[in-house]
């Protein structure tokens, strides 16, 4: 999706570069055809791909760090859960409301927080993730605390619900494809170039007339919208939400996916999410050694593909950003 057909024909090396993407797409297609529990695994992977695609805008393109993206997944997730399960809103309205809430929160949080840089920004955003988690635990009248909210309806429009696993997976695949396409378009835009510029040098970016503070804030808001969307999708697919689902492990998983897939690349979030989502299942039969082998596999990937799997095929690094 990142390369036009004409380019591929002109440059066979591009073929090789798109192999990891082809693999990820093949896995999704396989899951849609197979229909077994792999549907669940791939479904979660696609939801995470949306989440990571948002994180990629803020971290991969703009070069900033956020350990608190789970906060926005929580906002989306709980907005969807409460509005649909408790107040009977249609899922789509819940998703939109969640995203609107995430935008407002990202603006309010981003304005003071994004003044921080480097490790301080990492710590600041980490705190936000932890605070929102605590709110999810403590605000029992709304979130039901650790008991969680159940009875969340599946995705659908009007009376038509995506009941079957397969239909849900196809829907998720479409949403993920649109999300990646959106990040790709964003990267190719004036705004996208400004993000990559400020990640290289804020001073150089300023000298070109880029409003660094505002650009970062917009990137943060956009990534929050992706996170919120992912949170909403997650609760509709599972039908349940509790604080553990939007805790720190979500951030750790997303970081792993981003780095394994290829930070700053368009297709990296999908590739990383599929590979990381699938790895534990491949090793599940190993029982107690599952985590050990999974960890070893991760380390090997990061050693032999330090730029992420998405950049593996590029033997000669002619272009870094997918164009």
């Amino acid at each position: 999706m990142a390369t036009s057909p004409a380019t591929i024909l002109r440059n066979p090396r591009q073929w090789l570069g798109q192999l990891p993407l082809a693999f990820a797409v093949a896995v999704v297609a396989y899951a849609i055809i197979d229909g077994g529990y792999i549907v669940t695994v791939v479904g979660f992977a696609l939801i995470y791909a949306v989440f990571v695609a948002g994180l990629n805008i803020f971290m991969g393109y703009a070069g900033q760090t956020s350990f608190g993206q789970n906060a926005f997944a929580a906002i989306g997730g709980y907005a969807s859960a409460v509005l649909t399960a408790t107040y009977g809103w249609p899922p789509l309205a819940g998703i939109v409301a969640g995203m609107a809430g995430a935008v407002v929160c990202a603006l309010l949080i981003g304005m003071p927080t994004l003044r921080l840089k480097g490790h301080y920004l990492a710590m600041g955003t980490l705190a936000i993730g932890l605070i929102v988690y605590e709110i999810a635990v403590e605000w029992q009248s709304v979130t039901n605390g650790y008991m969680g909210i159940s009875g969340i309806p599946p995705l659908g429009i009007g009376s038509w619900e995506l009941e079957s696993d397969r239909a849900q997976l196809i829907f998720l695949a479409i949403v993920t494809a649109l999300s990646l396409w959106a990040t790709w378009r964003l990267r190719q835009s004036r705004f996208g170039r400004a993000l990559v510029a400020l990640s290289g040098s804020e001073d150089a970016a300023r000298a070109l007339g880029i409003n660094v503070g505002r650009t970062k804030l917009i990137a943060f808001v956009i990534s929050a919208m992706f996170a919120s969307l992912a949170g909403s999708l997650l609760v509709h697919i599972v039908g349940f939400i509790s604080p553990e689902m939007i805790g720190m492990n979500m951030v750790i998983l997303a970081f792993t996916m981003l780095y394994v897939g290829g930070i700053g690349t368009t297709t990296g979030p999908l590739i990383g999410a599929v590979v990381i989502g699938l790895l534990p299942e491949v090793f599940r039969g190993l029982k107690d050694y599952q985590d050990l082998v999974y960890g070893t596999a991760l380390i090997l990937i990061l050693i032999y593909a330090p730029g992420g799997i998405a950049s593996l095929g590029r033997l000669a690094p002619k272009r870094r950003a997918a164009r």
Binding site: G36, Y37, V39, T40, V41, F44, Y146, M147, G148, L234, V238, F240, S242, E244, M245, N249, E281, R284
Partner: peptide
Amino acid sequence: EPQEAVTVYRKMISSDHVGIFISGCVSA
């Protein structure tokens, strides 16, 4: 973790074809 529980329940239903669940204390 709830999300992980969903995955393993699905796996046991569709891959292992279990006939009953006798599951632990992770309520969520």
